[in-house]
């Protein structure tokens, strides 16, 4: 799944919504959000990959 401009906009909005925090915790939160979105993307992209008998052919 390719990243779209809308995704970047939403991501920036998400980061901006954190408000005023200390410098260190702000970057920790940004990393955690990025990592969460990245992992979610992987889960979304991956098909269910269940086995069906047609795979035997």
């Amino acid at each position: 799944m390719k990243a779209t401009p809308l995704m970047f906009i939403l991501f920036r909005f998400y980061l901006m919504s954190f408000g005023k925090t200390s410098f260190g915790s702000r970057w920790v939160k940004r990393f955690l959000v990025w990592r969460f979105i990245w992992k979610e993307k992987e889960r979304y992209v991956a098909s269910s990959k269940y086995f069906t008998p047609d795979e035997l052919c």
Binding site: K49, Y50, F51, T52, P53, E55
Partner: peptide, 11 residues
């Protein structure tokens, strides 16, 4: 068996 095979990465 289909359940078992579904647990495996077959790619």
């Amino acid at each position: 068996i289909p359940r078992l095979l579904g647990l495996g990465d077959r790619d």
